[in-house]
Design a protein around this nucleic acid. Structure first.
Lengths: 293, 293
DNA sequence: TTTCATATATCATTTATCCAGATATCGGCC
DNA sequence: GGCCGATATCTGGATAAATGATATATGAAA
């Protein structure tokens, strides 16, 4: 049994047929059949049920499949690890919350890109849930998300600590005034945003339920609307302070227990940390820990 | 790059030479040289320094080596997983503390062996530290050790809860009497035994330090000596109750915080749980949880 | 310095393996 | 029955791997 055999096996299993697998692997069907047969002979057990519309996995095949996938991943990692000579280079695909990107990342990223011009840096934004999913599936090497995260395959490291505040238009004096008025509207970045649930919890704890939800695609839009008196939102304090709407937005501090939020960098435990990633973490890490104290 | 290449690479790295690797792999040196060279060409970086007494790893080779080892392990696991049809069979090598083996395992093991006669069961005893080490290095599929365990590569599951008690000869009324006399001797199974540190902590908290340490290879010997008034020991209550020295040993209960100890079953997170192991856990698990309540 | 023991590198040759294409076979479906 | 979409089997040729003989480098001992 060899990695090549498992690659073929995996393709057949995934595509449900030897012909389709052959096409994907740029070879012919007879070849695929023969390799699968050899693998079955070696293991002493059939891996596929053959039927007229293709093949399906036997129980043995089902047990083998995850190993085939891990094998492919391991080979790719091995190649990267050996090739990587310590000088950051090549692709680095990471994720981030939009708020983190806006608030913290821009200066760091530009410094990083300048320091390591040979790295092709890609930053994708999404919600914490989406990013966790992408990192777990290895579509991202890592991501900055909103803590806490508890996922057995991921490791997390605190990168930033933010104070979340409730933002409303200038006229509003306090949270309670806002809630008292009824017809509360809250503005969030998008569905699944980690701040949304938190904001709803905060309001619920103060007796406000069933607030109307508004979604905007950019932070600018949210702040603009909040400034215009459309509703309230929950964002890191620094983000509001730095915006051009500061003058027209009232910031309502929350008790520490609710205000504190940690931005974590997550990555797979079992995956190779490329030099590009290590260098990225070096850039992001130290200034932050100072800032947090 | 393929698993076969990495196998050759690993052998060369481990044995420090292509000739030695060739001998181990049952092939010829020229072949090994060629394969290594191909691998180096493919990766675009040398993996070995060649010198007159063999070869040594370059940095790239050092980075690659762990992947080669993981690859070999993964292939072996894959084979086992596919071959394993759910009926427990073949070798099952597990570890246990000697006390756990004596106290809990004997009836379970005999039932297990009777239920699955095709399993070749091997039980090795050792200290918690040794067993953790062996499981991490995959020399054991799993082990019953004394909790708590915090090791990133291992997962743990509570199997038994024991009450530890201090055992002395009949004449001794209380812990304090024992400590007060000075010249305290404590008897442990062997160096590194997890109960030893715990016993020393317990005594230290009561003002007894510098107790003399005696080591005996078997639990029988320990109990015999304790009964004879040689010293004190720390063991699960049930173990003393069940022994033939019960009459001559005084049992001193400890406060709950010190007495409670959990026996965990540990195994590697990333390794395949064979049917033989799953069946073993089925045998060990359920009666225990009842007993603990 | 010469020689020797012990390494790796290279090369021609044999051997085994893999691949491609043609063909046979099987199982539904109209 | 005949067709369609599958997998199974077979064979020649291309490709890659293993082998054995030989060349080369290096340090240690005579």
């Amino acid at each position: 049994m060899d990695a090549a055999d498992l690659r073929i096996f995996e393709a057949v299993a995934r595509l449900g047929g030897m012909n389709r697998a052959a096409a994907e692997l740029n070879t012919v069907q007879s070849n695929v059949t023969a390799r699968v047969r050899l693998l079955e002979d070696e293991l002493g057990t059939p891996l596929f049920h053959r039927h007229s519309r293709g093949v399906s996995l036997t129980p043995a095949g089902q047990r083998l499949l995850p190993y085939a996938e891990r094998m492919a991943q391991l080979l790719a990692d091995a190649k990267r690890a050996a090739t990587d000579d310590g000088a950051p280079r090549g692709p680095l695909v990471i994720g981030s919350l939009e708020t983190t990107a806006a608030l913290r990342l821009s200066p760091l990223l530009s410094r990083y890109a300048a320091a390591w011009p040979e790295v092709d840096l890609v930053l994708r934004t999404g919600t914490t849930g989406e990013l966790v999913e992408h990192v777990a599936a290895r579509r991202l090497e890592g991501a900055l998300v909103c803590g806490p995260i508890d996922h057995p395959e991921l490791q997390a490291e605190v990168m930033f600590r933010e104070e979340l505040v409730l933002a409303t238009a200038r006229g509003v004096r306090s949270l309670d005034e806002l809630i008292g008025k009824g017809e509360l509207k809250i503005v969030v970045l998008r569905a699944g945003c980690s701040y949304r649930q938190r904001l709803e919890d905060i309001l619920a704890r103060r007796g406000a339920v069933g607030a109307r939800l508004l979604e905007f695609g950019t932070i600018e839009a949210i702040l603009g609307c909040v400034a215009a008196g459309l509703g309230a939102t929950l964002l890191p304090r620094a983000l509001i302070t730095a915006s051009r709407y500061t003058e027209r937005i009232a910031v309502h501090a929350l008790p520490v227990s609710e205000a504190h939020v940690e931005t974590l960098f997550i990555r797979r435990r079992d995956s190779y940390a490329s030099s590009a990633l290590s260098a990225f973490l070096e850039h992001v890490r130290p200034p932050v820990l100072q800032a947090a104290e």
